[in-house]
Amino acid sequence: MEAGYLGIDVGSVSTNLVVIGPGTEVLASVYIRTQGDPIGAIQRGLKMVAEELGDGIEIKAVGTTGSARHLAGVVVGADLVKNEITAHAVASIHSVPEVKTIFEIGGQDSKIIILRDGIVTDFAMNTVCAAGTGSFLEHQASRLGIPIEKFGELALAAKNPVRIAGRCTVFAESDMIHKQQTGHRVEDIIAGLCEALVRNYLNNVGKGKELLPPYVFQGGVAANTGIRAAFAKFLGFEPIIPQHYKVMGALGVALLVKEEAERRPGFVTAFRGFAASELRYQVGSFECEGCPNRCEVVNLRMEGKNLAYWGDRCGKWSNLS
């Protein structure tokens, strides 16, 4: 049996799984939609990974990341739960060792990570606004009746990108509608939106940071050629799109957990196995009445047994698990 290391990144929009081998080569990679059901997505993802791997691979360690990393960790039995900023940085350094700036644009958040000599020296995440994220692009694509996959292609066909306000999704949307109603071509509007998104992202998330090349651009939005072109236009450099750009979080946490497992002699994984995709998980929530905070406590059960509680401020429930 050959050794494999599994990384799982459960984000707001997509759930990604990556298995790497002893030489850090990617053996399997899965990118699916979370669709508001993280547990279901993890289980579907596990099944797909198991099929892709076939027999002959034994999972030696598992790591989870992304906004549902703690939930995912309990569901699959993770050995390492790591924040997505660190996971993304690790994968990026692994793919492009000389990287100095990482642009990562995902479904609900976008980040900039600054590195020098392979070390993270600064990072920023969008805090109050979704104007620079994948969800907004998708929303606009569906409003215009364009499949998101065609978005970039259309943007590149623009002759005169129009100016769209990029500070706020509400401003951007009303600006777009206004331009569309005065007769601008849809290509020009889309290209304008790509530029607005990049301008807002660089000014807002990248504010006060020294953005030096080489640039790595990753996350689901890196598939969008229109956004890539807008970055190149603003920065004067083509950003590098790593081969596994869609699943960098999962790759990063797989690399981290592999290193950790190899460093500990006699390490045994807590992984429940691919059979976890067949287990019955149930989540329920209730309002705790212990104090006026009325915390919304979440309870996870596996095959009828209590696995974990979370969501309380005081630890009354989460300490039970």
Partner: peptide, 9 residues
Amino acid sequence: TRLEAFVDL
């Protein structure tokens, strides 16, 4: 998430 990443840094 931000605190954890900051501590890593």
